[in-house]
Amino acid sequence: MFALTGELNFFMYAPATDMRKGFDGLSGIVSGQLKRDPANGDVFIFVNRARNKIKLLHWEAGGFVLYYKRLESGTFDLPVVEGSNHAKLKWSDLVMMVEGIKLEKYSLKKRFSFIQG
C-alpha cells in the first residue's frame, strides 16, 4: 500500500481540505491550524469535502512525501471527530479507512505488552 509504519503518529485534519494544496499549503494547515511541526515525522491526513480524495503528508529524511489517493467510486469512511479540528488515528484505522473497510462494531482483544520501567 504505502511505506508508512505503525510506529508513527497519525493525525487526521477534520475539516474538508482543498486537494489543490501541495506541500506548502498542507504544511501551513499543520502549523497554523493543528499547531504542530509538519517536519517532526508525524503523518498528517487530509480529505476533501466529497470524501473521495485523501492526501497524507509525511516528513522523511531529506524532505516531504505526499501520498495521494482518489477513489473512482464510493467515499472514504471517516472517523467521527468531536470538539476538535483533528483526531489521532491508529495505523490499523488508517489502513482500514484507505482500503475501504468499514467495521460497525469491533473490539480489540487484549494483547501482551512488555513495558520497561
Rank of each mutant, 00 (worst) to 15 (best):
residue 91 W to N: 03
residue 107 S to N: 04
residue 45 I to A: 01
residue 109 K to E: 14
residue 16 A to I: 06
residue 49 R to C: 01
residue 105 K to Y: 04
residue 101 I to D: 02
residue 84 S to A: 15
residue 2 F to L: 14
residue 13 Y to N: 01
residue 29 I to V: 13
residue 89 L to A: 03
residue 9 N to T: 12
residue 60 E to L: 06
residue 2 F to H: 10
residue 19 M to R: 05
residue 71 L to H: 02
residue 101 I to W: 07
residue 9 N to W: 01
residue 103 L to M: 10
residue 77 D to T: 15
residue 57 L to E: 02
residue 26 L to I: 08
residue 72 E to T: 09
residue 48 N to L: 10
residue 52 N to T: 12
residue 11 F to R: 04
residue 97 M to E: 02
residue 117 G to W: 03
residue 34 L to A: 08
residue 3 A to F: 06
residue 96 M to V: 05
residue 55 K to F: 03
residue 16 A to P: 13
residue 115 I to V: 15
residue 11 F to C: 09
residue 88 K to R: 15
residue 116 Q to G: 04
residue 50 A to M: 10
residue 9 N to L: 11
residue 104 E to S: 11
residue 101 I to E: 12
residue 8 L to Y: 11
residue 14 A to H: 14
residue 117 G to S: 09
residue 85 N to D: 13
residue 3 A to I: 09
residue 114 F to E: 13
residue 23 F to Q: 02
residue 107 S to F: 06
residue 51 R to I: 03
residue 4 L to W: 01
residue 67 Y to A: 08
residue 22 G to C: 07
residue 34 L to Y: 09
residue 66 L to G: 06
residue 6 G to A: 11
residue 47 V to Q: 03
residue 22 G to K: 07
residue 37 D to C: 04
residue 106 Y to S: 12
residue 10 F to T: 02
residue 66 L to Q: 03
residue 61 A to C: 05
residue 86 H to G: 00
residue 46 F to C: 00
residue 10 F to R: 06
residue 100 G to K: 09
residue 23 F to W: 10
residue 70 R to F: 00
residue 75 T to A: 11
residue 43 V to A: 15
residue 67 Y to K: 01
residue 70 R to E: 08
residue 21 K to I: 00
residue 95 V to R: 14
residue 113 S to T: 12
residue 41 G to C: 04
residue 100 G to E: 11
residue 41 G to Y: 03
residue 12 M to R: 02
residue 94 L to P: 02
residue 38 P to D: 02
residue 23 F to K: 08
residue 59 W to M: 08
residue 6 G to R: 12
residue 85 N to V: 14
residue 80 V to H: 07
residue 102 K to M: 03
residue 79 P to G: 05
residue 42 D to E: 13
residue 22 G to N: 07
residue 88 K to Q: 14
residue 77 D to F: 11
residue 93 D to A: 14
residue 50 A to F: 04
residue 21 K to T: 00
residue 46 F to Y: 09
residue 91 W to L: 04
residue 76 F to Q: 09
residue 68 Y to H: 15
residue 10 F to W: 08
residue 10 F to Q: 05
residue 14 A to N: 13
residue 38 P to V: 10
residue 77 D to L: 09
residue 95 V to G: 00
residue 35 K to Q: 12
residue 21 K to F: 01
residue 58 H to I: 05
residue 75 T to Y: 06
residue 54 I to W: 01
residue 78 L to T: 09
residue 36 R to K: 13
residue 74 G to Q: 11
residue 60 E to Y: 01
residue 30 V to W: 00
residue 81 V to S: 10
residue 94 L to Y: 01
residue 66 L to N: 02
residue 56 L to D: 04
residue 16 A to S: 15
residue 103 L to S: 09
residue 115 I to L: 14
residue 55 K to E: 07
residue 117 G to R: 10
residue 46 F to H: 06
residue 2 F to Y: 08
residue 46 F to L: 07
residue 63 G to H: 06
residue 73 S to V: 08
residue 88 K to F: 06
residue 36 R to S: 00
residue 61 A to V: 08
residue 23 F to E: 07
residue 42 D to V: 00
residue 42 D to H: 14
residue 7 E to R: 13
residue 57 L to N: 06
residue 99 E to K: 14
residue 56 L to M: 13
